[in-house]
């Protein structure tokens, strides 16, 4: 049971870290990949909270499809954040 609590604490720390990295990166492709990593860790957290339905949906939509759509959109606009 201690291992469960330690794992959940590590998952929450990773979730906050990746969510801060999304805001911190100025390169938008790096930010999109950090958002995908955040979604994957969120799916692991859903699985630990015994909601495997939501975990499957979050992993498929958040980690695969949203990252692909963001990268398609970034490649047709600017790559870095800020005004020109």
């Amino acid at each position: 049971m201690t291992l469960y609590y330690v794992l959940q604490l590590l998952v929450l720390i990773g979730l906050v870290t990746t969510a801060a990295a999304v805001i911190w990166f100025k390169d938008l492709i790096s930010a999109a990949i950090a958002l995908g990593a955040s979604s994957l860790i969120l799916a692991l957290q859903f699985y630990l909270l015994r909601a495997p339905d939501v975990a499957i949906a979050e992993a498929a939509v958040g980690a695969a499809l949203t990252t692909a759509i963001f990268i398609f959109a970034i490649r047709s606009t600017d790559r870095t954040e800020g005004y020109r």
Binding site: P52, D53, I56, A57, A60, V61, A64, L65
Partner: peptide
Amino acid sequence: TPGGGFQGGAVVAS
């Protein structure tokens, strides 16, 4: 089992 139409469809679309 866990899953359903939306989850399986998202996996195939990936």
